[in-house]
């Protein structure tokens, strides 16, 4: 019975991190900063939730581990693809930005309304 409670607490912490990720994409000023919180907080939230579920029900641990690994591997890739495409079409950065070396290297291709 104890492992049920421990696992549920892990799930709860994971859900809190997921919530923080969502809060981050609302609060952050521009797309790239949103992506930072949207990638990191949700990744740890996913892994913690899967870990907690695995503690609660050890028979499912293999499949839960697969899901967690899947998130861990694909999440950076999709956010990298989004960030690259956004920079390519010239999504503006926040005025707080101090430096943009990519702009000097690869100028923005088009100002599409993406």
């Amino acid at each position: 019975m104890v492992h049920h409670i421990v696992g549920a607490v892990f799930v709860l912490i994971g859900a809190l991190f997921l919530f923080l990720g969502a809060l981050g994409i609302v609060r952050m000023p521009d797309l790239y900063n949103r992506m930072q919180t949207g990638t990191k907080a949700t990744t740890l939230g996913n892994v913690l939730t899967m870990l907690g579920l695995g503690i609660m029900h050890p028979a499912w641990l293999l499949k839960l581990t697969l899901i967690a690994l899947f998130v861990l591997f694909t999440n950076p890739i999709s956010s990298h693809a989004l960030a690259r495409a956004a920079h390519r079409v010239g999504v503006p950065m926040t005025p707080l930005t101090v430096k943009d070396t990519l702009k000097d290297k690869k100028p923005v291709v088009k100002e599409a309304e993406v």
């Binding site: 900063n33 950065m93 707080l96 101090v98 430096k99 943009d100 070396t101």
Partner: peptide, 9 residues
């Protein structure tokens, strides 16, 4: 928010 964003190489 303590942020100072930028793109570095």
């Amino acid at each position: 928010m303590p942020i100072r964003p930028g793109i570095v190489t």
